[in-house]
Simulated assay, not measured.
Amino acid sequence: MAKSRHSAIGRQPSRLRIMLVPPVTVVLGSMITALPIITDYPILPPMGLLILLAWRLIRPGYWTVWAGFPLGLVDDMFSGQPFGSAAFLWSVVFVLLETIDRKAVSRDYWQDWLIASIATVFVLVGGMLIVDLQSNMLRLDLLAPQILLSTLLYPFLTRFIGAIDNWRVAS
Rank of each mutant, 00 (worst) to 15 (best):
I51H: 03
S135N: 10
F94P: 06
V65M: 15
R102N: 07
Q81Y: 14
I161W: 10
P70I: 09
Q12A: 15
G84E: 14
R159V: 07
L124Q: 04
P22H: 10
L143A: 01
G48F: 11
G84N: 13
W167L: 14
L138Y: 10
I43W: 04
V65A: 13
V74N: 06
P70L: 09
F160P: 00
S14D: 10
T33W: 02
T158S: 11
L149R: 00
I9V: 15
I51V: 15
S85T: 10
S91T: 14
P60F: 09
S117Q: 09
V123N: 02
M137K: 08
S30D: 09
L133M: 12
Y62M: 13
G61P: 03
L153K: 08
K3D: 05
M1I: 05
I147L: 00
S150E: 01
A144C: 05
P60M: 08
L138G: 06
L16H: 07
F78Q: 03
S150H: 01
Q12F: 14
A87I: 12
W63T: 15
D108Y: 11
L153W: 09
V24K: 12
H6L: 14
S91A: 14
P42Y: 04
L97W: 06
I161S: 07
S150F: 00
A34V: 02
T33N: 02
V95G: 06
D112T: 04
L152M: 06
L73W: 03
T39E: 13
I18H: 10
A86M: 09
L20G: 12
D108A: 07
T64N: 06
G61Y: 08
V105R: 08
A67V: 02
W63I: 15
G80H: 03
G127N: 08
I161Y: 07
M128R: 02
V26K: 08
L97E: 04
P45K: 04
S7V: 08
L35I: 10
L97C: 08
P145C: 00
V26Q: 10
F69T: 14
R56Q: 06
L133N: 09
P46L: 04
L20T: 15
R139A: 13
V27C: 15
I51Y: 01
L133H: 14
S30K: 05
